[in-house]
Amino acid sequence: MTTVTTRRAKTTKVENVATELVRAIDVVWQGIRRRHADVPDVMITVGSGTLGAKPGQARLGHFAAARWQRDGESLPELFVSGEGLQRGASDVLGTLLHEAAHGLAHVRDIKDTSRQGRYHNKKFKELGIELGLELAEDASIGWSLTSVPAATVTEYAKELDALIAALVIYRHAEIRPASRSKSTNLAVAQCACPRKIRVAKSTLAEGPITCGKCGADFEAEDEDE
């Protein structure tokens, strides 16, 4: 990594940080491919995992087939969430192995998910175990809860050294503006029938609202009742 040193401060160029990050992710991915020949080559992208997500949720990564084109050949995309980088190298390894399992499913033509890709079935679990992961089941997303056992961390120690050195940056989560609460400034008004309606107090104050059934005006109920 190239650094520029002055008497006042030591700085690292952002473009060099980005380059080293993607290179380190690729080092790990190629390490996975050396151990598991069916895992495909990919185009690596890093970006927001919280943009468009529900508050408190984040997407850690995804594998998407045929997203890129190279020399007339389609290339899958490996997306890595910038927010997830702060979890540390072993957890990022878990994300990469998780996405590699989806890559295996794609190459082997195995249906490993359902519900628009949200639910991970037992076939995905088998692929994850093949890659060295431990997986737990969740009622809503299936066998998607990923952890990396110590043996797998040890196996990838050399690749993780490069990743540890590159994880000097991560992305902050998107901050959504507080949603405005709906106005509850409504009055309950009643005619002679009696029928009741709910209407904005300002609307009721502009002039009478007449019931088409009894011909009487709706009048606001006493709020203290």
Score class of each variant (00 low, 15 high):
G84R: 06
L85I: 09
L85N: 11
Q86S: 09
Q86C: 05
Q86D: 04
R87W: 11
R87V: 02
R87T: 11
S90P: 00
S90A: 12
S90G: 00
L93V: 03
L93P: 02
L93E: 07
G94L: 07
G94H: 08
L96R: 04
L97Q: 05
E99W: 06
E99R: 02
A100N: 09
L104G: 02
L104N: 00
L104Y: 00
A105Y: 04
H106N: 13
R108L: 14
R108V: 04
R108G: 04
D109A: 14
D109E: 15
K111P: 00
K111N: 08
D112N: 07
D112R: 01
T113C: 04
R115I: 04
Q116T: 10
G117W: 01
G117T: 02
R118Y: 12
R118G: 00
H120M: 12
N121G: 11
K122S: 14
K123S: 13
K123F: 05
K123N: 11
F124E: 11
F124N: 12
K125G: 04
L127H: 14
L127F: 13
L127I: 11
L127D: 14
L127V: 10
G128S: 09
I129K: 15
I129Q: 15
E130C: 07
E130H: 14
E130L: 15
E130Q: 15
E130V: 06
L131E: 05
G132C: 08
G132P: 06
